[in-house]
């Protein structure tokens, strides 16, 4: 029996311990805000926080998630009012929107680590998150706005 916390709620899982956290969240808990994009940690659509660190949930097994605190897009802020979400809205970042949960979780982790990121910091932190619509320029603006640094 694997125990873990998801968005503050204690959960137990007795399925395949090799199941990736992504599919546990999506298919077992029906928390579909975390997206499937590549399955091998190359696109970032499935990014969640594991004990506070941005993590690709497609590449972490339930065995590895045991005992951890998982935060997903659904739990990032009570009313969607995390500074990153607010900046995302103010800057109209999403186009199709599919990758944006992952982008937002990655950006939130970046700002926790580096509250005033440079362009280089943003490139380093965000290059694992693909956006096929090409919203990168808006993402960069929104991160800077959330951080209160000059665009």
């Amino acid at each position: 029996m694997i125990q873990l916390k998801v968005n503050g709620t204690s959960r137990q899982f007795d399925g395949d311990p090799d199941m990736p956290l992504l599919w546990y969240l999506r298919d077992i808990l029906d928390m579909t805000g975390t997206k499937f994009g590549c399955g091998v940690g190359l696109c970032g659509a499935c990014t969640v926080h594991v004990n506070g660190a941005a993590t690709r949930s497609c590449s972490m097994t339930m065995k590895q998630a045991a005992g951890k605190n998982i935060l997903t897009i659904e739990g990032l802020a009570a009313h969607g009012d995390h500074p990153v979400q607010k900046a995302w809205k103010a800057n109209n970042v999403p186009q199709c929107g599919y990758c944006q949960s992952g982008q937002i979780m990655q950006a939130a982790a970046l700002l926790k680590q580096k509250p005033k990121p440079t362009d280089h910091d943003i490139d380093e932190a965000m290059q694992g998150n693909i956006c096929r619509c090409g919203t990168y320029q808006h993402i960069r603006q929104a991160i800077k706005q959330a951080a209160g640094v000059k665009a």
Partner: peptide, 10 residues
């Protein structure tokens, strides 16, 4: 979308 609530086909 920014709260992960909007359903895609997936």
């Amino acid at each position: 979308i920014v709260t992960g609530q909007r359903a895609f086909g997936m």
